Simulated scan of single mutants.
Amino acid sequence: MKPTDIKNPEYFHKVVDCQYACPAHTPVPEYIRLIAGERYSDAYMVNWQSNVFPGILGRTCDRPCEPACRRVRVEEEPVAICRLKRVAADNKGDITDRLPAIPKKKNGKRIALIGAGPASLTVARGLAPLGYRLDIYDNQFAGGGMMRSQIPSFRLPVGVLDEEVNYILDMGVTSTFDIEVDSLKEILNKGYDAVFVGTGAPRGKGLNLPG
């Protein structure tokens, strides 16, 4: 018998509806069991591996997993999956020793990341443990992108945002803030092996109302 291919999202559609509905396919039952056992740091790391910002998402995610929760077949309300992320994040201990080790000897490749929002930070989290030298540029005073500029602090406390952003920036990423990158040619002329543009889509839609 072949082992179950859990890397195939269709597997979760067959057996774990909430995990399939999650865009990151976070293993929901696993971290809920860990929370039930008061293993909050373990539950946090299960989330961190798949969705990068558990404390932030525990406050801001639009929860596509919850309408898919099987509990609504027998009860009126689904399991509070999103808020349980926050429970894990708010009750965890120091997890810095669980983060990926960053090699002192680099692989010789330099990558520029334009923008310091969720996309660029996720790229940095994946590449830093592989030995890449990473330079990140952003026009704000700190990392976080639209999480920092668009979500009010009563919804997303600055301390929570800073903590999870810094987990990544502290992986040896060279950060240059308060700078507007208005020429990709200048960036390319710096000799980077690759450039990732993660500037987001900040332009809003006008209502186009007459009068």
Rank of each mutant, 00 (worst) to 15 (best):
M1A: 15
I6R: 05
N8G: 05
V16A: 10
C18W: 04
C18Q: 06
C22A: 05
H25N: 11
V28S: 11
E30F: 12
I35T: 06
E38I: 07
R39E: 13
Y40Q: 03
D42K: 12
W48Q: 10
W48Y: 14
Q49N: 10
V52T: 11
F53M: 10
I56M: 14
I56T: 09
R59C: 04
T60G: 08
C61P: 01
R63L: 02
A68I: 03
R70S: 13
V72H: 07
R73N: 08
E76P: 00
E77W: 03
P78R: 07
I81L: 08
R83Y: 12
L84F: 11
R86C: 02
V87E: 13
G93S: 12
I95L: 00
T96I: 12
K105V: 15
N107T: 08
G108K: 03
A112C: 05
L113M: 07
G115R: 03
A116S: 11
G117Y: 02
G117S: 00
G117E: 03
T122V: 01
V123I: 09
R125N: 15
R125L: 13
G126D: 06
P129H: 04
L130I: 02
L130E: 14
Y132C: 02
Y132A: 06
R133M: 13
R133G: 06
D138A: 04
G144M: 00
G145N: 00
P152D: 12
F154P: 11
V160Q: 09
L161H: 02
E164L: 06
N166E: 11
I168M: 12
I168L: 08
D170L: 02
G172I: 02
G172V: 05
S175M: 03
T176W: 07
D178A: 13
E180N: 07
L184K: 00
L184I: 00
E186V: 00
I187K: 01
G191F: 02
Y192G: 06
D193N: 04
V195W: 00
G198L: 08
G198C: 10
A201Y: 14
R203Y: 10
G206T: 00
G206C: 04
L209T: 07
L209H: 07
